[in-house]
Protein backbone atom coordinates (compact mmCIF):
# COMPACT_ATOMS: atom_id res chain seq x y z
CA UNK A 1 0.00 0.00 0.00
CA UNK A 2 1.26 3.45 -0.89
CA UNK A 3 0.86 6.32 1.51
CA UNK A 4 1.07 8.88 -1.29
CA UNK A 5 0.50 8.44 -5.00
CA UNK A 6 0.84 11.33 -7.42
CA UNK A 7 -0.38 10.77 -10.97
CA UNK A 8 0.25 12.91 -14.03
CA UNK A 9 0.23 16.36 -12.45
CA UNK A 10 0.12 19.18 -14.98
CA UNK A 11 0.29 22.87 -14.23
CA UNK A 12 0.78 25.93 -16.36
CA UNK A 13 0.76 29.62 -15.63
CA UNK A 14 -0.66 31.18 -18.77
CA UNK A 15 1.38 29.77 -21.65
CA UNK A 16 4.20 28.79 -19.36
CA UNK A 17 4.06 25.04 -18.77
CA UNK A 18 5.66 24.39 -15.39
CA UNK A 19 4.66 20.77 -14.70
CA UNK A 20 4.25 18.34 -17.57
CA UNK A 21 3.02 15.11 -16.06
CA UNK A 22 4.67 14.34 -12.72
CA UNK A 23 4.04 10.91 -11.21
CA UNK A 24 5.57 9.13 -8.23
CA UNK A 25 4.51 7.11 -5.26
CA UNK A 26 5.77 6.62 -1.74
CA UNK A 27 5.54 4.01 1.00
CA UNK A 28 4.93 4.92 4.63
CA UNK A 29 8.16 5.96 6.31
CA UNK A 30 9.89 6.66 3.02
CA UNK A 31 11.97 9.79 2.53
CA UNK A 32 11.94 11.19 -0.98
CA UNK A 33 14.22 14.02 -2.06
CA UNK A 34 13.49 16.09 -5.11
CA UNK A 35 16.50 17.60 -6.88
CA UNK A 36 16.64 19.78 -9.94
CA UNK A 37 17.83 23.14 -11.13
CA UNK A 38 15.90 26.35 -10.52
CA UNK A 39 12.80 26.61 -12.65
CA UNK A 40 12.42 22.86 -13.03
CA UNK A 41 9.07 23.02 -11.19
CA UNK A 42 10.01 21.55 -7.78
CA UNK A 43 8.39 24.28 -5.70
CA UNK A 44 5.30 24.40 -7.96
CA UNK A 45 4.89 20.65 -7.49
CA UNK A 46 4.96 21.03 -3.71
CA UNK A 47 2.51 23.93 -3.86
CA UNK A 48 0.13 21.91 -6.03
CA UNK A 49 0.25 18.93 -3.68
CA UNK A 50 -0.47 21.25 -0.73
CA UNK A 51 -3.35 22.97 -2.54
CA UNK A 52 -1.66 26.37 -2.62
CA UNK A 53 -1.98 26.07 -6.39
CA UNK A 54 -4.61 24.06 -8.18
CA UNK A 55 -3.16 21.54 -10.62
CA UNK A 56 -4.66 21.65 -14.13
CA UNK A 57 -4.66 17.87 -14.48
CA UNK A 58 -3.74 14.83 -12.44
CA UNK A 59 -4.71 12.93 -9.32
CA UNK A 60 -3.41 12.58 -5.79
CA UNK A 61 -4.10 9.53 -3.61
CA UNK A 62 -3.44 9.17 0.11
CA UNK A 63 -3.45 5.59 1.45
CA UNK A 64 -4.73 4.57 -1.99
CA UNK A 65 -7.83 6.74 -1.62
CA UNK A 66 -8.35 9.51 -4.16
CA UNK A 67 -8.17 12.89 -2.42
CA UNK A 68 -7.67 15.14 -5.41
CA UNK A 69 -8.69 14.89 -9.04
CA UNK A 70 -8.19 17.98 -11.17
CA UNK A 71 -11.13 17.00 -13.34
CA UNK A 72 -13.72 16.98 -10.57
CA UNK A 73 -12.08 19.06 -7.88
CA UNK A 74 -11.96 22.40 -9.67
CA UNK A 75 -14.61 23.62 -7.28
CA UNK A 76 -13.96 22.21 -3.84
CA UNK A 77 -15.75 23.74 -0.89
CA UNK A 78 -13.50 25.34 1.69
CA UNK A 79 -14.36 22.60 4.18
CA UNK A 80 -13.43 19.79 1.77
CA UNK A 81 -10.20 21.54 0.91
CA UNK A 82 -9.23 21.84 4.56
CA UNK A 83 -9.89 18.21 5.40
CA UNK A 84 -7.67 17.23 2.47
CA UNK A 85 -5.02 19.74 3.37
CA UNK A 86 -4.65 18.24 6.83
CA UNK A 87 -3.16 15.05 5.31
CA UNK A 88 -0.05 17.07 4.58
CA UNK A 89 2.28 19.47 6.31
CA UNK A 90 4.52 22.00 4.60
CA UNK A 91 7.71 23.64 5.83
CA UNK A 92 8.47 26.80 3.88
CA UNK A 93 11.79 28.07 2.63
CA UNK A 94 11.37 31.33 4.55
CA UNK A 95 9.66 29.81 7.61
CA UNK A 96 6.52 32.01 7.58
CA UNK A 97 6.19 31.92 11.34
CA UNK A 98 3.47 34.18 12.73
CA UNK A 99 5.43 37.12 14.19
CA UNK A 100 2.83 38.10 16.80
CA UNK A 101 2.93 34.70 18.49
CA UNK A 102 5.65 33.06 20.59
CA UNK A 103 7.25 29.83 19.43
CA UNK A 104 4.84 27.93 21.68
CA UNK A 105 1.79 29.84 20.40
CA UNK A 106 2.87 29.28 16.80
CA UNK A 107 2.88 25.53 17.40
CA UNK A 108 -0.41 25.53 19.35
CA UNK A 109 -2.49 27.85 17.15
CA UNK A 110 -3.72 25.43 14.48
CA UNK A 111 -4.38 22.47 16.83
CA UNK A 112 -6.32 24.77 19.18
CA UNK A 113 -8.48 26.16 16.40
CA UNK A 114 -9.07 22.64 15.10
CA UNK A 115 -10.03 21.40 18.57
CA UNK A 116 -12.85 23.94 18.69
CA UNK A 117 -14.63 21.98 15.99
CA UNK A 118 -14.57 18.85 18.12
CA UNK A 119 -18.03 18.27 19.66
CA UNK A 120 -16.37 17.52 23.01
CA UNK A 121 -14.70 20.94 23.07
CA UNK A 122 -17.52 22.60 24.99
CA UNK A 123 -17.30 20.20 27.92
CA UNK A 124 -13.61 19.27 27.84
CA UNK A 125 -11.83 22.33 26.49
CA UNK A 126 -9.51 22.67 29.50
CA UNK A 127 -8.19 19.13 29.14
CA UNK A 128 -7.93 19.46 25.37
CA UNK A 129 -5.95 22.68 25.52
CA UNK A 130 -3.74 21.26 28.25
CA UNK A 131 -3.02 18.25 26.03
CA UNK A 132 -2.25 20.48 23.01
CA UNK A 133 0.19 22.51 25.09
CA UNK A 134 1.91 19.39 26.40
CA UNK A 135 2.25 18.00 22.89
CA UNK A 136 3.59 21.32 21.62
CA UNK A 137 6.14 21.46 24.43
CA UNK A 138 7.38 18.00 23.62
CA UNK A 139 7.60 18.86 19.91
CA UNK A 140 9.67 21.94 20.73
CA UNK A 141 11.88 19.77 22.92
CA UNK A 142 12.26 17.36 20.03
CA UNK A 143 13.61 20.14 17.81
CA UNK A 144 15.84 21.29 20.67
CA UNK A 145 14.04 24.51 21.57
CA UNK A 146 12.40 23.89 24.94
CA UNK A 147 14.29 26.85 26.39
CA UNK A 148 12.99 29.16 23.63
CA UNK A 149 9.29 28.41 23.77
CA UNK A 150 8.27 31.85 24.99
CA UNK A 151 10.42 33.72 22.48
CA UNK A 152 8.95 35.62 19.56
CA UNK A 153 10.18 34.72 16.06
CA UNK A 154 12.10 38.01 15.78
CA UNK A 155 14.13 36.98 18.83
CA UNK A 156 15.20 33.70 17.24
CA UNK A 157 17.92 32.90 14.70
CA UNK A 158 16.93 31.68 11.25
CA UNK A 159 17.77 28.11 12.15
CA UNK A 160 15.72 28.30 15.34
CA UNK A 161 12.80 29.81 13.44
CA UNK A 162 12.91 27.00 10.91
CA UNK A 163 12.93 24.44 13.72
CA UNK A 164 9.85 26.08 15.24
CA UNK A 165 8.14 25.90 11.87
CA UNK A 166 8.96 22.19 11.64
CA UNK A 167 7.43 21.69 15.10
CA UNK A 168 4.40 23.71 13.98
CA UNK A 169 3.89 21.46 10.95
CA UNK A 170 4.31 18.33 13.07
CA UNK A 171 1.71 19.49 15.59
CA UNK A 172 -1.08 18.50 13.23
CA UNK A 173 0.40 15.01 12.79
CA UNK A 174 0.41 15.08 8.97
CA UNK A 175 0.72 11.81 7.07
CA UNK A 176 3.32 13.32 4.77
CA UNK A 177 5.56 16.27 5.60
CA UNK A 178 6.86 18.38 2.72
CA UNK A 179 9.95 20.61 2.91
CA UNK A 180 10.44 23.37 0.36
CA UNK A 181 14.18 24.08 0.34
CA UNK A 182 14.22 24.28 4.15
CA UNK A 183 17.84 25.42 4.37
CA UNK A 184 18.06 27.79 1.41
CA UNK A 185 17.39 30.90 3.48
CA UNK A 186 19.98 29.96 6.10
CA UNK A 187 23.69 30.49 6.60
CA UNK A 188 25.76 27.37 5.96
CA UNK A 189 26.46 27.11 9.72
CA UNK A 190 22.76 26.99 10.52
CA UNK A 191 21.97 24.50 7.79
CA UNK A 192 23.34 21.64 9.87
CA UNK A 193 20.87 22.06 12.72
CA UNK A 194 17.91 21.78 10.33
CA UNK A 195 19.37 18.78 8.55
CA UNK A 196 19.86 17.09 11.93
CA UNK A 197 16.21 17.63 12.81
CA UNK A 198 15.12 16.19 9.47
CA UNK A 199 17.48 13.25 9.94
CA UNK A 200 16.01 12.51 13.37
CA UNK A 201 12.52 12.60 11.88
CA UNK A 202 13.60 10.14 9.21
CA UNK A 203 14.85 7.82 11.94
CA UNK A 204 11.39 7.96 13.51
CA UNK A 205 9.87 6.86 10.17
CA UNK A 206 8.23 10.14 9.26
CA UNK A 207 7.17 10.11 5.61
CA UNK A 208 8.82 13.13 4.01
CA UNK A 209 9.26 14.83 0.66
CA UNK A 210 12.24 17.18 0.64
CA UNK A 211 13.03 19.67 -2.09
CA UNK A 212 16.65 20.54 -1.55
CA UNK A 213 19.95 21.56 -3.07
CA UNK A 214 21.97 19.69 -0.41
CA UNK A 215 23.09 16.77 -2.57
CA UNK A 216 25.15 15.01 0.11
CA UNK A 217 22.34 15.31 2.60
CA UNK A 218 19.78 14.00 0.11
CA UNK A 219 22.02 11.04 -0.59
CA UNK A 220 22.46 10.22 3.10
CA UNK A 221 18.97 10.78 4.44
CA UNK A 222 16.63 9.79 1.65
CA UNK A 223 15.54 6.41 0.37
CA UNK A 224 14.64 7.68 -3.07
CA UNK A 225 15.69 10.65 -5.14
CA UNK A 226 13.63 12.16 -7.89
CA UNK A 227 15.41 14.39 -10.37
CA UNK A 228 13.23 16.94 -12.08
CA UNK A 229 14.06 18.75 -15.28
CA UNK A 230 11.84 21.23 -17.14
CA UNK A 231 8.63 19.99 -15.56
CA UNK A 232 9.16 16.26 -15.99
CA UNK A 233 10.75 13.53 -13.88
CA UNK A 234 14.04 12.98 -15.65
CA UNK A 235 15.23 10.21 -13.39
CA UNK A 236 14.08 8.49 -10.23
CA UNK A 237 15.76 5.81 -8.17
CA UNK A 238 17.36 4.69 -4.93
CA UNK A 239 19.26 7.64 -3.47
CA UNK A 240 22.84 6.35 -3.39
CA UNK A 241 22.58 4.77 -6.81
CA UNK A 242 21.14 7.87 -8.45
CA UNK A 243 23.83 10.13 -7.05
CA UNK A 244 26.74 7.81 -7.73
CA UNK A 245 25.54 6.35 -11.02
CA UNK A 246 23.19 8.76 -12.74
CA UNK A 247 21.83 7.38 -15.98
CA UNK A 248 20.14 10.47 -17.35
CA UNK A 249 22.31 12.95 -19.14
CA UNK A 250 20.67 15.98 -17.46
CA UNK A 251 21.10 14.43 -14.03
CA UNK A 252 24.76 13.85 -14.74
CA UNK A 253 25.27 17.43 -15.88
CA UNK A 254 23.41 18.75 -12.82
CA UNK A 255 25.45 16.68 -10.36
CA UNK A 256 28.64 17.54 -12.17
CA UNK A 257 27.95 21.25 -11.69
CA UNK A 258 27.96 20.71 -7.90
CA UNK A 259 31.34 18.99 -7.89
CA UNK A 260 33.11 21.93 -9.44
Amino acid sequence: MSILTVKDIYKNFGRNEILKGISFDMQAGEVLSILGSSGSGKTTLLRCLNFLEKADAGQVYVDDALIFDAKTDKKMTARELRSKQLNFGLVFQNFNLFPQYTAMENVCLAPQLLARENPEYKTHHKEMIEKIREDAASLLERVGLSDKKDFYPSQLSGGQQQRVSIARALALAPKVLFFDEPTSALDPELTGEILNVIRSLAEKDMTMVIVTHEIEFAKNVSDTILFMDKGVVAEQGPAVELIENPKNERTRAFLQSFKR
Binding site: F88, F92, N94, N96, A169
Partner: peptide, 17 residues
Protein backbone atom coordinates in the same frame (compact mmCIF):
# COMPACT_ATOMS: atom_id res chain seq x y z
CA UNK B 1 3.41 38.84 3.24
CA UNK B 2 1.32 36.34 1.31
CA UNK B 3 3.35 33.57 2.97
CA UNK B 4 1.51 34.30 6.22
CA UNK B 5 -1.83 33.40 4.65
CA UNK B 6 -0.31 30.37 2.95
CA UNK B 7 1.16 29.14 6.22
CA UNK B 8 -2.28 29.50 7.80
CA UNK B 9 -3.93 27.71 4.91
CA UNK B 10 -1.62 24.67 4.98
CA UNK B 11 -2.23 24.46 8.73
CA UNK B 12 -5.92 24.00 7.96
CA UNK B 13 -7.16 27.40 9.12
CA UNK B 14 -10.33 28.72 7.50
CA UNK B 15 -10.25 31.98 5.57
CA UNK B 16 -11.80 33.91 8.45
CA UNK B 17 -9.42 32.32 10.98
Amino acid sequence: PVGQQEAGQVLGLTKSQ
